[in-house]
């Protein structure tokens, strides 16, 4: 076991760095420029039951130290993910991968997980509960403990693999949502998803994004994400995967001190496709500078 290794829900990672879903596709674009097997793992593109085109264009708006996206879960649907994407992924990545799943009903979450459950390479399910609940008035599952509980219970029945619930920061009390996950059988939580935001085009006097609002991400949100990781990790006994604006080895260490067992890197991959490689390569030096012998030992060190 290396100095950078961590254990996430019973599976050993060589290091805690995990490209976040939606910024890394199914891995092969990045495999063109570096060997992605150096990663702890990665979370693949959010997968739904049916193929989705997603939202109208423009889907992207730039911000100071960040960006807004309203892609709208474009993906080929779970059957094509199994028949086309996973065989391609398998050729360039040889470790357990994290399957990011989404749904617009409790049944859809359970269906997608049970379809993917037989895929040997999938080590964990990361369940995105930020989608609107079409049977619940369109409000995001992730904003109510009771709705999250239903999703967690349904997914728990669909798979024996570790379930990580990916939480939305757009809530009044993220701790109560995280506790509902823990109480209903989640193995871990990951946070935060993007913050709801918008931009207006001054010349057109209209929102930049066709969908009006979208998810704000990038270095600008790091302090907000860190605060929530800290609050949640103090309140639950399951592992926390930290993410939100992480773009350096220092950010990874800071997230771990706030209680993260592993750390996801999202938007940084879009600006620098080698971002995760650079972070992993910078970690040993940074650990030495800070007198850290074993990265595991600092998890929750500031809590």
């Amino acid at each position: 076991m290396g100095k950078m290794s961590v254990n996430l829900c019973g599976i050993e990672l060589d290091n805690p760095v995990i490209p976040a879903s939606g910024t890394f596709g199914f891995g092969y674009e990045f495999a063109e420029i570096y060997d992605i097997n150096i990663l702890g793992t990665f979370s693949f593109k959010g997968t739904t039951k049916e193929a989705r085109f997603g939202n109208d264009l423009p889907r992207i708006a730039e911000c100071t130290q960040g960006m807004i996206n309203a892609v709208g879960l474009q993906n080929p649907g779970v059957e094509k993910v199994i028949s086309e994407e996973l065989p391609k992924l398998k050729k360039c990545f040889h470790k357990p991968v994290m399957a990011n799943v989404s749904g617009f009903s409790v049944e859809e979450y359970a269906h997608v997980c049970s379809r993917l459950d037989g895929e040997e390479q999938i080590g964990w399910f990361e369940v995105n509960v930020s989608c609107p609940n079409v049977h619940g008035g369109g409000m995001s599952f992730g904003t109510q403990p009771s709705a999250v509980a239903q999703v967690v219970s349904a997914v728990r029945k669909a798979t024996k693999k570790p379930i990580i619930i990916k939480l939305s920061p757009n809530v009044t009390d993220i701790v109560s949502i995280a506790k509902a996950c823990e109480d209903n059988g989640a193995d871990a939580v990951s946070l935060v998803n993007t913050l709801l935001g918008m931009r207006i085009d001054l010349k057109k006097r209209k929102p930049v994004i066709a969908n009006v609002m979208g998810g704000f991400s990038g270095p600008a949100i790091f302090p907000v994400a860190l605060r929530m990781v800290y609050q949640v990790s103090k309140a639950v006994n399951i592992p926390v995967v930290g993410m939100g604006g992480v773009s350096s080895a220092e950010d990874v260490i800071e997230m771990m001190l706030a209680g993260a067992t592993a750390v996801e890197v999202g938007t940084a991959n879009l600006v620098d496709p080698e971002a995760c490689k650079k972070i992993i390569e910078a970690l040993p030096q940074k650990m030495e500078e800070l007198g850290i012998d074993d990265l595991k030992s600092i998890i929750g060190g500031a809590c």
Partner: peptide
Amino acid sequence: ERMGCGFGACMGCS
């Protein structure tokens, strides 16, 4: 088109 990454990862310009 407005792009996020420019190399096919983000689906921002589909």
